[in-house]
Amino acid sequence: MRTAILPVLLSHRRVRNPLSAAQVVLFLCLCIGFVMIAYPMFWIIMSSLKTSREITTEIWSLPTTPLWRNYVIAWRSGISQYFLNSMIVTISTILGVIVVASLAGYGLSRYRMLWTNLVLIPIMGGMMLNPQVCLIPLYRILTNLGIRNTLLALIVPYIAFRLPMHTLIIRSFFLAIPREIEESALMDGCTGFQIYGHIFVPMSRPILVTSAILTSYYAWNEFMFALIFIDSNRYRTIPAGLMNFRDALQVDYGPLLAGMVISALPIMIFFISVQKYFVRGLLAGSVKG
C-alpha cells in the first residue's frame, strides 16, 4: 500500500521543480503520519478476514484465504440488530433536531421581541453544558417517563442536547435571508407557518443538510448515553453494542473485527462523500460553540 503510493506521489513533485531538503523531510514525515493513520485501519480490514489463530499469531501477514464467514457470523450474532437500532435512532434524531431547531430558529430570527432575546440565553447556555452533568437526573427522568431502555431514551436526549447548537446555526442562516422576500409573502396573505414552510425551509436546504449530517455524526457515534440508558441487547446501538459483542464473542476475534468494519465503513464512506457539507458543519458548529 505504502510502497505503491510513494513513488507515484514523488514523481508528481519531481516533474515540476527540484525538491528542497526541507520538503523531502516534510514529505517523509507526512508519509510516516500516513502509515500511522492508515495502517491500523487497513489492519482491521485485513484481520477481519483471518481466523482467530492467524490474528494472534501472524499479525502482520495477509489472510491465507479470505474468511468472509466472519462477516456472516458478525451480522447474524447481533450486528444487524445494532445497525438497525442505530439507523432508527439516527434518522429520528435528525428529523427531531431539524424540525424543532428550524421552527425555533425561525421564531427567534423573525420575531424580535424582548422575550426572544431572553430565550436565546438558555439556548446558548445549553451549548456550553456538558451532557455528563445531567446524567444521573436524566436517568431518573427517563425511568419515570417509562422510556428508559427503549430507543426513545436515546432519541429524546440526543435531540435535546443537539438543539442549542443547531437552533443557533439555523437561526443565523435565517437572519441572512432578506426581509423583502418575507414581506412580499406577507402581502400575499401568507401566515407565519406558511412563510416558514414555503419559503424559509426550501431556501435553507444547504444549512439543513449540514445540520442533518452533523447530527447523524453525533447520533451514530454517541457512547455514554447509549451505554447507560439502554439495558437490553435488542435496543443497543452500534457503539454500545460492540462492547457487548466483544464480551459475547470471547475467543472469536475475527467476527469482532468484521463487526467493527461493518459498523465503521459504510458511515465513513457516507461522510467522505458528503465531506463538503460535513466540514462546513464542523466549522459552523465550532465557531458557534
Partner: peptide, 30 residues
C-alpha cells in the same frame, strides 16, 4: 417592524417545542 404582525401567540408556538425539550431534558436535570 415585524413584531407587530400576527398574533403574539404565533412566535411562541415556533419556539415552544425547543423550550420544552431544553427545559425538561437539559435544565431540569441540571
Amino acid at each position: 417592524k415585524s413584531s407587530c404582525r400576527g398574533s403574539s401567540l404565533e412566535p411562541l408556538l415556533f419556539t415552544l417545542p425547543c423550550i420544552v425539550m431544553l427545559g425538561v431534558f437539559v435544565y431540569l436535570p441540571l
